[in-house]
């Protein structure tokens, strides 16, 4: 089931396209689901499919093709650090290593308290701001020196009562 508020968000996306092309809104609807539930389950895919009049398999093809959809639950805060070459030249890789060390996990993993998932990412389109990371798909944090990474992680831990 989806809430009326979520339905309204879906409808706003669908309205951008010709009536018979509701499928065009699938990218946006899935990202709304992910924002609200943290990941895209197969039940969510079914809900989106019904809403847009698509086959669930066609929705799943989209979820699995695009890198940013979480096909499994992730930590409450997903951190994506860019390590592509332009960022690598300006400590992107080091930022990733620093976070691995700080969080005690390898990239791709989630901390045992369920707070953080750490991932490497490809170019975020913010290369001059390196080191950069994306928090929960929507918030870009730039010029993330080790100090600032520490402040970010410690701050979130404190706010979540897990300091």
């Amino acid at each position: 089931m989806i809430s009326d508020a979520t339905k309204a968000r879906f409808a706003k996306e669908v309205a951008k396209y010709p009536a018979e092309q509701a499928q065009s809104a699938v990218m946006a609807c899935l990202s709304i689901v992910q924002q609200e539930l943290g990941y895209v389950s197969s039940e969510s895919e079914k809900v989106v499919a019904d809403f847009l009049g698509m086959a669930p398999m066609a929705v799943h093809e989209v979820t699995s093709f695009y890198n940013m959809y979480n096909q499994k639950p992730v930590g409450k805060f997903k951190l994506n650090v860019c390590t592509n070459l332009p960022c690598q030249l300006r400590d992107g890789q080091k930022a990733l290593h620093h976070l691995e060390h700080k969080l005690g996990i390898h990239m791709g993993e989630t901390t045992s308290d369920g707070l953080f998932t750490l991932q490497q990412s490809e170019c975020l389109g913010a290369c001059a701001d390196s080191p950069v990371l994306l928090v929960n798909d929507r918030k870009m944090c730039s010029f993330m020196s080790n100090d600032k990474l520490d402040q970010l992680v410690d701050g979130i831990r404190a706010a979540e009562g897990k300091a």
């Binding site: 805060f77 913010a126 001059a128 701001d129 950069v132 928090v135 929960n136 918030k139 870009m140 944090c141 730039s142 010029f143 993330m144 600032k148 402040q151 970010l152 701050g155 979130i156 706010a159 979540e160």
Partner: peptide
């Protein structure tokens, strides 16, 4: 401060490249 506020602080520091 909520976790969102903390993230916002860092999100606001970037993008001054032009």
């Amino acid at each position: 401060m909520s976790a969102q506020d903390i993230i916002d602080q860092f999100a606001a520091t970037g993008v001054q490249t032009c």
